[in-house]
Write a protein that binds this DNA or RNA. Structure first.
Lengths: 159, 159
DNA sequence: TAGACGTGGACAACCAGGTTGACTATTGTT
DNA sequence: AACAATAGTCAACCTGGTTGTCCACGTCTA
């Protein structure tokens, strides 16, 4: 049964969806029913140093306006806070709140748990091989999160 | 280097994106710069027998209204045609046009070519193993295409 | 030191692809 | 014949993107 290239693509998508859907469900069960993967990614980027909207936009390969919108909801839900930047009055410095970090932590744990289940099903070594191959194929690719809609939108350069 | 579950998810996403971006780019180069993966999926479903809007919506796990919108653009661009259904006057029967089939064919060829390149990089057997594992993990999962936005929207049941 | 230029943020208008809800026309069932 | 279910359409709305415009502030340089 020779697989088609399209099947392969679908398989990868299904894998991603499976993990993410699982994670969202579990996160919701833990009381964080208002977090989306987008938010997780954004918080992670903020925690990693993208502490203002423009920078966040750059990290996520998204316009600063889009980043600002995401920040607005994150702030609204208490996951990040914004304060004046002491050194540059143009900026509003972003910070992940304790609640935000809690979600981040929970998210990580859930993903790790899901991965662990996969390990149990196909074997630790096998899963590692799978990851290695994927990594080899893709490089440590920069995450591009102009995602919602990208399935349907105009193309960017290929990865 | 123990990989995290989140990395795994990102890896799968990156893989999918890589293939799809590549395919869109190539398809655009061949003159079909107005096709999105969504359209491809929809045409495929229509060709496979989902010959009316409601049915298409069901196949794609999407509301019939959403399906109708997709059909509208597909029709507008000449990829599918709609005619009266001789047996049921409520229905408008969908048909993929020759142009639509051409795109479908081209898309398949491109995906196969991309998959082939992956074969060359990690080896035919290795890629097959990867696919087998993924398939084992996911089952021959029904494709759920309520996708644009699902990264950011409310959760459905996990796959 | 003044002005030019660049950058951060905000606002508005727009788009794509989804959603629900309401309504009509037709078909199928009792 | 009456009623229920289904196909399609319209309208209003949501989310997460996009551009473009504008202002306030910082930085660089003539």
């Amino acid at each position: 049964m020779p697989r088609s290239g399209a099947d392969l693509a679908l398989l990868l998508l299904a894998g991603f969806r499976s993990l993410v859907d699982g994670a969202m469900t579990e996160l919701a069960a833990q009381g964080h029913d208002d977090v989306r993967p987008v938010h997780d990614f954004a918080m992670r980027a903020i925690a990693a140093g993208a502490d203002n909207a423009s920078e966040l936009g750059r990290r996520l390969s998204v316009s600063k306006q889009a980043a600002a919108k995401t920040i607005a909801v994150l702030q609204d839900r208490g996951y990040v806070s914004r304060g004046a930047d002491p050194v540059d009055a143009r900026r509003k410095r972003l910070e992940v709140t304790p609640l935000g970090f809690e979600v981040l932590r929970a998210g990580e744990a859930i993903f790790d748990e899901l991965r662990h289940r996969w390990e149990e099903r196909i074997g630790t070594a096998q899963l590692e091989v799978l990851e290695q191959h994927l990594t080899a194929l893709l490089g440590e690719s920069p995450i591009r999160l102009d995602t919602p809609g990208w399935l349907a939108r105009d193309l960017g350069e290929p990865v």
